[in-house]
């Protein structure tokens, strides 16, 4: 079995915890509860006949005054960068998060989630120019969540 550490990174309030909760427990709660520090969840999955254990790090979101500790990023094989597609500034900050993570783990793989897609119409989504490796997700409606994690795992496998 292959064990991989991945992190969910992004601004606060973009839905990182909700994505993990949806993927690991298949649950969702509409209320916003801030994450402090880090909490680890585990998830097993099989990709191309390879059993994987994902150690999913739910990391406290970045705020204008506080960046994510680089010590959390050590040893990570991948990351999911999360933005709230209804808040433009969280999309604009993605590059900073990616750069910070890759400075610690240059060879790590990543994917991007434009979360809370349930808040936008199809027309509004079309107006957003998606970054490479990005997809719209909704933890609330369970849209594209599993695919997000599977896609990252596929990228991390040799």
């Amino acid at each position: 079995m292959i064990r991989k550490k991945i992190l969910l990174l992004g601004d606060f309030g973009v839905g990182k915890t909700s994505l993990i909760r949806r993927y690991v427990d298949n649950a969702f709660d509409d209320s916003y509860l801030t994450t402090i520090g880090v909490k680890i969840s585990k998830k097993h999955l099989t990709i191309r006949d390879t059993e994987c254990e994902l150690l999913i790090w739910d990391v406290e979101g970045a705020t204008p005054l506080k960046q994510v500790l680089k010590s959390y990023m050590l040893g990570a094989s991948g990351a999911i960068f999360v933005a709230d597609c209804s808040r433009e500034e969280t999309i604009a900050h993605l590059d900073q998060h990616i750069e910070r993570f890759l400075s610690v783990n240059p060879s790590a793989r990543y994917v991007i989630a434009y979360n809370k897609s349930d808040l936008l119409t199809e027309e509004q989504k079309e107006e957003i120019s998606c970054k490479k490796y990005a997809r719209f997700t909704s933890a609330k409606e369970d849209s594209n969540v599993s695919q997000l994690f599977i896609n990252l795992t596929e990228k991390m496998l040799p």
């Binding site: 064990r3 550490k5 520090g37 880090v38 010590s71 959390y72 050590l74 990570a76």
Partner: peptide, 25 residues
């Protein structure tokens, strides 16, 4: 601590070695 094996190696080797991972739930 998976991914921090290097910290453990260093702690075994060096007296006074100390690493901290903050605020873990």
């Amino acid at each position: 601590l998976i991914g921090y094996e290097k910290w453990i190696d260093e702690a075994l080797k060096e007296e006074g070695c100390h690493h901290t991972l903050k605020t873990i739930q």
